[in-house]
């Protein structure tokens, strides 16, 4: 989706066009759900929260300023949905790994080794405290700038930088030589 397309869909959505908003949902649903899944470690909860986030986004579309970062705005709403859900103290089932990893097709030995590494990485990321995990995933997976992350998480840019630093450091320590190139 180009920037112009996005702006067009936003304007049409703000005018009440469902199909334009559906296009935005289709574009941003996966990344919002992936981030929430990374934070909750619960695919079902992440799906529900994503739905809630988009519904709230639809309701609050008039407050969005065209020209600003729509994706960061969505992440901000998603974060608030997550906070609200935790405030309600809804029990969250803990799953060690997202399903996505197991869905990959089996391949040669090299692929298996690679998959093993990814499993280890995902487990290590899941063990990070959420205060470090949230900015780390926004930076690494979603490629938001530190400034955008600061807005999403309502932190200072310095704090975001420090938390990403901390996450990387902990992960490198935890994974150690598992990240070294495969011997083959």
């Amino acid at each position: 989706m180009s920037h112009e397309e996005e702006q067009l869909w936003i304007r049409r959505s703000q005018a009440g066009d469902h199909s334009a908003f559906a296009s935005l949902v289709n574009s941003y649903w996966p990344c919002i759900q992936r981030w929430l899944q990374g934070l909750t470690q619960d695919p079902q909860a992440a799906e529900d929260l994503t739905q809630e986030a988009f519904f709230k986004a639809w309701s609050a579309l008039a407050s969005f300023t065209p020209g600003t970062n729509f994706r960061a705005w969505l992440f901000c709403i998603a974060r608030h949905c997550l906070i609200d859900s935790r405030r309600c103290a809804r029990p969250v089932s803990t799953r060690p790994l997202p399903d996505a990893c197991a869905d990959r097709e089996p391949g040669p030995v090299r692929t298996l080794i690679g998959r093993e590494t990814q499993t280890l990485v995902q487990e290590a990321v899941a063990r990070l405290p959420v205060v470090f995990r949230a900015p780390f995933l926004l930076r690494t997976q979603e490629e938001l700038s530190y400034q955008e992350i600061a807005r999403v998480l309502d932190l200072t840019e310095e704090t975001v930088r420090w938390r990403v630093f901390k996450a990387r450091k902990l992960l490198l320590k935890a994974l150690g030589n598992a990240l070294d190139p495969d011997p083959s």
Binding site: N26, P30, E47, A100, D103, T117, Q118, F136, L172, D180
Partner: peptide
């Protein structure tokens, strides 16, 4: 090298499918 690999592995986590019931419900 380890850091670059770490970033690559995290980025490679597949995106969830858009074809899920919650999206349809929305």
């Amino acid at each position: 090298g380890r850091l670059v690999r770490l970033i690559h592995e995290v980025q490679e986590v597949p995106l969830p499918s858009t074809d899920c019931p919650a999206r349809m419900q929305l």
